[in-house]
């Protein structure tokens, strides 16, 4: 299993380097998703399949989609249609697809090597994580809940467009 770890570590480093050196933000986000997927594979190899699933669902799923939404909102120029044409070109997505293909082949090799049973890899089972999370770390869970709540309220408050205040006395005094 060492070879699988080194290959996915190489994929993680390469895609991270590509992510911070792209000019276009969407291209960088493609490579960042590949980096997070390879990190999920590394978590799996280190015996944490639950964390690997969380990494794919929350990091590579939710957070990256949030990034992509914001980048798309910022890019609304008059040349956005031509830009979308450019994004369909294969030279943009061939790099990330190649790296994801490497990860996929590794996944197939690993599953076929263990006869389809992933439990041989598990070092700390999700049951132990859940038990520890809700017994000894329950205070941390509540603080995380408060953090997420303040994050939601803060994001709504900051992201709201300010309404233009119109006041008839002030408008009248301009004349």
């Amino acid at each position: 299993m060492d070879v699988l770890f080194y290959i996915s570590a190489g994929v993680a480093i390469g895609s991270s380097v590509m992510a911070i050196t792209r000019k276009n933000a969407v291209h960088a986000l493609l490579y960042l998703v590949v980096s997070l997927l390879s990190a999920a594979f590394i978590f799996y190899l280190f015996g944490a399949p639950f964390i690997a699933a969380l990494e794919v669902i929350i990091y590579a799923g939710a957070i990256m989609v949030l990034f992509i939404f914001v980048v798309m909102m910022l890019n609304l120029g008059k040349d956005s249609e031509r830009q979308e044409q450019d994004w369909m070109k294969p030279k943009i997505w061939i790099g990330p697809s190649f790296l994801v293909g490497i990860l996929f082949i590794e996944f197939i090799i690993m599953l076929s090597g263990t006869g389809g049973s992933y439990f041989q890899f598990v070092k700390v089972s999700p049951r132990e994580v859940g038990t520890s999370l809700f017994t000894s770390y329950v205070l941390g869970v509540e603080m995380t809940a408060m953090l997420l709540m303040s994050g939601i309220v803060g994001a709504y408050h900051i992201g709201r467009r300010k309404k233009k205040m119109r006041h008839r006395y002030l408008e009248g005094s301009d004349e």
Partner: peptide
Amino acid sequence: QVMFIFILAMAAAEVAVGLAL
């Protein structure tokens, strides 16, 4: 792994506020 779950939640909140900013 518990610590990683906390880091994940913190990253989600941080990204939401940062993107709004």
